[in-house]
Design a protein around this nucleic acid. Structure first.
Length: 500
RNA sequence: GGUCCAUUCGUCUAGUGGUUAGGACGUCAGGUUUUCAUCCUGGUAACAGGGGUUCGAUUCCCCUAUGGACUACCA
């Protein structure tokens, strides 16, 4: 039975890289009929951010990623928040000390900082490991009575892993294949902190074991500490889960991995949802993205099924997904393509659904329009926009008569005979019934032909007085939607205001 | 600096020991729309470099370069 987990740290809003990690875990679990677990890793009390936990859950929900076991959902392997069982971790750390694979260390952060600095002065790098641990303040170097006295005396201490010396550690990654690292390049990582909390290394290993996690799918930043984690499982005598390290998401321009600040700087969101605390950060949801489009775009960043299909529902993603086809190298995020994805999904939505959304915006602007009419409008312009929120910019002239006329268009299209032409056209339209796109077009064209006028001159002038610029859908669709009365009014207004 | 990971069009990517190296986004051009956008058609554009192995390497190996991650009592 496959069991995977997404284990974020509640230190702020979830970044899209994190969402993708959650997504791949979710797809993997669903594909194999497994269980997707959400575990909150809040062992760093200093970085805890109020609201982050809720934000994470809400984000996953919005994305359509359903959690099987977690804080809200419950489950047989709880608690699912690490701080809720902080006392449990100590015994596991002590267990390792008992086995001789870990030890107490009394060095203060200040001591270590000083060591690092003096090493750095010599052009060296200090690492707490086999070569120096015997000369530092710990239970391996100190006489037994002394360190036991320190322990009994309540001295602050941490528990460190005793990294074996010069051992080649072999391990396999589902995405990267076989990797070998020599243990002498690794340091004695802190497992248990002096504040009574475990570090990530200890806590995730213990929890993955307790929760019977079969596959750990996480970001590439964890690859360097995988040897330690493998060793930890060995020391505990536990079977290790399989590991898969996902490539990073890179900035669209320049170098490096996508960071939380890139969004505002480059003008696109890096968070799924708006983050209301601290620095304001916009989200995909508020920017008008459909969750399906967002997920589709994210899924294809670092994975693809090997076919040319690009549009996938969550179910289709689940069917097609395989961890082996996840890339090894990082992918640069492309905001342009993200928009394209949303456009595709917008096209798939019904006019009615889009219209209902648009109606809210119109109401807020003070326009009470019948849904049926909004639907007609949506049908006219939906393929011109990527987001429902862009509808207004494409349709503003339907609701408000132009109060200024694009001077460039006026210069090009407003000829000497235009007023006379429009006055005559006004009469033609006035006598056209019903005022439908087909009927008006037929009438106007017949009139043009009869009089031998230039079609372009008439049409462009009409568009100018109706729209105020050279843009918008088919002109007869516009005037028909507007109705005879408004159309006539706009012609009159144009006649009196242009060309004075 | 050290350790580890990676490298196909600008971007996301497909692909193979012998291919005209395919698709998508973007971009450019033409067509349609007597507007603009859409849409259609077409174009542009890539195997990081150098050595091997091989009859033949983009594909396999090594080196270099470049990029990235990690190098906390953070995750």
């Amino acid at each position: 039975m496959v069991r995977v987990r997404f284990a974020p740290s509640p230190t702020g809003p979830l970044h899209i890289g994190g969402v993708r990690t959650a997504l791949y875990n979710y797809l993997f679990a669903r594909k194999l009929g497994g269980t997707f677990i959400l575990r909150i890793e809040d062992t760093d009390q200093t970085r805890f951010v109020e609201g982050a936990e809720e934000y994470i859950m809400e984000s996953l929900e919005w994305c359509g990623i359903k959690v099987d076991e977690g804080i809200r959902e419950g489950g047989p392997f709880g608690p699912y928040r690490q701080s809720d069982k902080k006392e449990d971790y100590r015994q596991y750390a002590e267990m390792l000390v008992g086995k001789g694979d870990a030890y107490y260390a009394f060095d203060t952060p200040e001591d270590l900082e000083q060591m690092r600095m003096s090493y750095e002065k010599r052009g060296d790098t200090f690492i707490y490991s086999g070569s120096v641990r015997d000369s530092l303040s710990n239970s391996l170097a100190l006489p037994e009575e002394e360190w036991k006295a320190k322990l009994a005396g309540g001295d602050h201490y941490v528990i460190r892993y005793r990294m074996p010396v010069n051992e080649d550690i072999h391990f396999d990654d589902l995405i990267r294949g076989h990797i070998v690292v020599n243990s002498s390049t690794l340091d004695d990582k802190v497992l248990f902190k002096s504040d009574g909390m475990p570090t990530y290394h200890l806590a995730h290993c213990v929890d993955d074991h307790i929760m019977e996690i079969t596959h750990v799918i996480r970001g590439e930043e964890w690859l360097p500490s995988l040897p330690l984690h493998k060793l930890l499982y060995r020391s505990f005598g536990w079977a290790s889960p399989e590991f898969a390290h996902l490539p990073l998401l890179l900035k669209p321009d320049g170098k490096g991995k996508l960071s939380k600040r890139d969004g505002d700087k480059l003008g696109f969101p890096v968070f799924p949802l708006y983050w209301p605390y601290g620095e304001t950060a916009k989200g995909y949801r508020e920017d008008g993205y459909y969750p399906e489009a967002f997920i589709n775009m994210l899924a294809l960043l670092g994975w693809n099924p090997g076919t040319e299909q690009e549009i996938f529902s969550m179910d289709e993603l689940t069917d097609a997904f395989s961890i082996e086809r996840v890339h090894k190298s990082g992918s640069r995020f492309d905001p342009e393509k993200a928009k394209w994805f949303n456009h595709q999904y917008l096209l798939k939505r019904s006019n009615e659904e889009i219209a209902m959304q648009f109606r809210e915006e119109l109401r807020a602007k003070g326009f009470q329009i019948d849904l049926q009419e909004i639907e007609e409008l949506v049908a006219l312009v939906k393929e011109r926009v990527s987001f429902a929120k862009d509808l207004w910019a494409e349709t503003d002239f339907f609701f408000v008569a132009p109060d200024k006329y694009d001077p460039e268009v006026v210069r090009k299209r407003w000829k000497e005979d235009t007023p006379a032409l429009l006055a005559e056209l006004r009469g033609v339209l006035e006598n056209t019934d019903p005022f439908s796109p087909a009927e008006t077009e037929t009438a106007v064209k017949a009139w043009i032909t009869e009089k031998g006028y230039n079609t372009g001159n008439v049409m462009n002038a009409l568009r100018l007085v109706i729209v105020g610029a050279s843009r918008g859908p088919h002109i007869f669709d516009i005037i028909s939607w507007l109705g005879k009365e408004s159309t006539i009014e706009r012609i009159d207004k144009g006649l009196s205001e242009i060309g004075k």
